[in-house]
Amino acid sequence: MTDPRLLPRTIAVLGCGGLGVPAAWTLALDGRYPLVLIDDDCVELSNLHRQVLYATAEVGQPKAPALARALLEVAPQLQVEVRQGRLGPANAAALLQGCDAVLEGTDDAVSKFAVNDWAVGAPAGVQRVASIAAAIGRRGQWMVVRSAGPCYRCLFEEPPQPESLATCQIAGVLGPAVGQVGALAARSLLRVLAGEADSADGALVRLQARGLLRTPVAAAAACRCQARGDGAADSEPWGQHV
């Protein structure tokens, strides 16, 4: 049993789309952590095949409050807050104010790197953790980064040019597949927060048609990340008694 004093105050779910919906659903079923739902988008009809907690009648409405309503039906005791916005390097600290953990589920590579930098750049004595997920077609991937340990930049270095990325609008996406990825990314986040071993902690896990594939990421010493803050020296995992 995790010492409740070591539980983070709040988990932010960044992006209330195909990944964010199943991730938030998983976190709501867990119920131990207050959630902050962050999104700047509205529900569209083309979202509903994969963002299955929204109602057709909610098309045109902002996603974050609509998701909050749905989560409260699943878990009435859940503490949930809504923030409107799109995260980037300039506003990450402000938008994630009061959060200790992030489930990154947007379709924006810039957001993923900003969350990575927010997590690994934690000040001394502050522990942050982020589960960064992505999906397209029938496949997806996720990785958990923390104040100490390998990070997203160890693997991908820089955000790719937007025009080089396939998107759901071009390559399509299957709802249940992206649902699995979002839920598994949240599962990994919960395990790391509880101090349990998880395959995505410092490694990229891919879900493909032929199965799960884990790729360990180079250790922090090889990381060329420039955002790593003083908190990198704090190597205690989440939830572990110190």
């Binding site: 199943p22 976190l27 699995q180 839920a183 949240a186």
Partner: peptide, 16 residues
Amino acid sequence: TDAVALGAAVADLVVA
């Protein structure tokens, strides 16, 4: 908490 991933995984088999 595994319910969402499990349910989605089963739906994935049917949809695929």
